[in-house]
């Protein structure tokens, strides 16, 4: 199953590279953005020559592919460094940000969502639902700015932005946390309510199982399948880079890098970033499949 999956993912990746390669070149000439507005045609011509942008696009694509098989991803136009170095440097930041956030989100959403499901209609459930809906719908740039004004400027508890200490991670993670937390909490709650109403729980209760922990463990396992799908979806979004959060907090992650390189027409960086995130998402999908298989014996082969 895995090898089949790998082959189809590899094909998708190739299609993606072809698409991005040609589409990004349709956006225009990098020379007019790299060089000053008053640069002459001769300078532009020279810039294109140095960077191989004067060749026909098909020739450029051939060169790119032949470099690619030697794992040479080309240089960044803007940064005059290997594109892959630039991307990996940024991706490590994003990976940490995404990993820490998702672990916190998953733990918190499952705990709060389950408690809410056990207490449907009671105050705890109502409060959790309201907060999760607010969280799932509030714009993150607004939360980020309010967070900075409140916790950094007014209270002075946390640094406004940047990197360096562990405290610098608190606000970005908190802002990233809110939306997936709200969403996953709703799924957990709904799924748990479903499971708690199912025949096997009723049977267990009828047989005298009073202990909530036992019921919790059994229902959770079944309730988790739809939750895992959403977790995968949310994690993929985070791996693509949290553009807003990275921009506001000055976090040098891959989302901001990708947006910047699209705006600057730094083609090699766009391609390298897309390949890295695509591979990361592919690997994550495998993890999700493994999780499915662990939870649901029917899926195992």
């Amino acid at each position: 199953m895995l090898s089949k999956r790998a082959v189809s993912s590899f094909v998708s990746l190739l299609v993606l590279i072809v698409l991005v390669f040609f589409l990004s070149r349709l956006t225009g000439d990098p020379a007019s953005l790299y060089l000053p507005v008053d640069a002459s045609e001769a300078m532009r011509e020279n810039f294109r020559e140095i960077n191989g942008l004067n060749d026909p696009v098909l020739v450029q694509f051939g060169n790119y592919l032949s470099d690619l098989v030697r794992l040479d991803f080309g240089d960044s136009l803007r940064k005059a460094r290997p594109a892959m170095d630039v991307v990996l440097e940024a991706f490590v930041w994003t990976l940490w940000l995404a990993a820490i956030t998702m672990v916190l989100v998953v733990v918190a959403a499952i705990v709060v969502g389950s408690i809410a499901a056990f207490n449907v209609g009671k105050p705890f459930d109502r409060i959790a639902s309201v907060f999760s809906l607010i969280g799932a719908s509030a714009p993150d740039f607004w939360i980020a700015i309010v967070g900075i004004v409140l916790f950094s400027v007014t209270l002075g508890w946390l640094p406004t932005s940047g990197t360096g200490t562990v405290w610098h991670w608190v606000l970005p993670i908190a802002v990233l946390f809110i939306r997936p937390f709200g969403l996953i909490l709703q799924i957990v709650r709904g799924s748990m309510i479903n499971a708690l109403g199912s025949a096997y729980v009723k049977t267990a209760r009828a047989k005298g199982v009073k202990s909530s922990p036992i019921i919790f463990v059994h229902t959770l396992r079944n309730a988790m399948l739809p939750v895992i799908t959403v977790i995968g979806d949310q994690a993929a979004a985070l791996l693509n880079g949290a553009v807003v959060v990275e921009s506001i907090f000055g976090f040098p992650g891959v989302g901001k890098l990708m947006i910047d390189s699209i705006l600057q027409r730094d083609f090699n960086v766009i391609l390298a970033a897309i390949m890295v995130t695509a591979i990361a998402i592919f690997l994550m999908n495998i993890l999700i499949d493994v999780a499915y298989a662990l939870l649901d014996p029917c899926i195992r082969t």
């Binding site: 700015i145 900075i148 004004v149 002075g156 406004t160 932005s161 921009s247 901001k256």
Partner: peptide
């Protein structure tokens, strides 16, 4: 030298003494 895309954050950094 540090870089912030959002000018409001840059302004907040001065206010917070960073």
């Amino acid at each position: 030298y540090v870089f912030r895309t959002d000018p409001a954050v840059a302004a907040a950094m001065i206010q917070a003494g960073e």
